[in-house]
Amino acid sequence: MINQIEEVKKKFLEEIETVKDEKQLEEFRVKYLGRRGIIQTLFDKLKEIPREEKPTIGKFLNEFKELAQIKFDEKRKEIESGKRKVGELVDLTIPGRFKYTGRKHPLTQTLEEIKKIFVAMGFEIASGPEIEDDYHNFEALNIPPEHPARDMQDTFFIKENIILRTHTSPVQIRVMESKQPPVRIIAPGRVYRNEAISARSYCLFHQVEGLYVDEGVSFAELKGTLLSFAKQMFGSSVKLRFRPSFFPFTEPSAEVDVSCFICGGKGCRVCKYGGWLEILGCGMVDPNVFKFVGYDSEKYTGYAFGMGVERIAMLKYGIDDIRLFYENDFRFLEQF
């Protein structure tokens, strides 16, 4: 009897190796492990053997049955998962199947980072048109006709008094026209400048405008807000430098430099060995602007700021030619 079992076992182990698919597996299962399979017939035969041999042979048979079941389960798993045995000539060094990878444009990524920081500080998002009127783009921002400050921004005209906005500041006016303080917004968007295209300037770019108007808003708070932004954006060790400047719609006005986060302020090619990088303009909203939108400038004060998304993206990623953003070379986009 033992010999018979050994023979079955040998055959079983041989045959199971030849099983290649589910159909064969099922056939194999029926043949050996089925209700009328070989193993069951062996158990049936157990009744016929002498009583004293029963425990030994029974144990032997049971062990075989367990082994058979384990081997069968392994085989089933192997087939189900498509797994093949090592050494069976599967070349795992063949490359995986590639898919096209999507990427957000580096300008979008930079803008999203900026937005996230200000939204967390309680700023809401506002927007306005790109085709803008002279009133919102200039006059209400305290830039009357014939003012030399108009030379600071070369303008594209659509027709008399209609232009392509030169900055996102007109959104300040539109927001203040539509609601009373407190106002706390950022306004991202595209702006246009009639300037020759070069590695350093393009005829359009993107800005993020910020505006906060309420009772008791101060220049010191503007400084703190922007310092917090800069640390979150560029790293907690950066410093800011506020330089007095001039914008018609803010007073006092400042241009803001961040300590070079590439060299840590020691001086490098990016900061032109000066240790500082200019990143934004800001100031306290000029009372004349409040007059245009009908806010009481004795009761309310506010601050405003504006920054160029391209500028920040260029600094952040070390991009040296602004035109790369609009060329959309896939070899460029792939890097971000």
Partner: peptide, 13 residues
């Protein structure tokens, strides 16, 4: 401007 403190808190509505 650099001698004016950075106020690091704000009233948020």
């Amino acid at each position: 401007y650099d001698r004016i403190p950075d106020k690091m808190r704000s009233v948020v509505h």
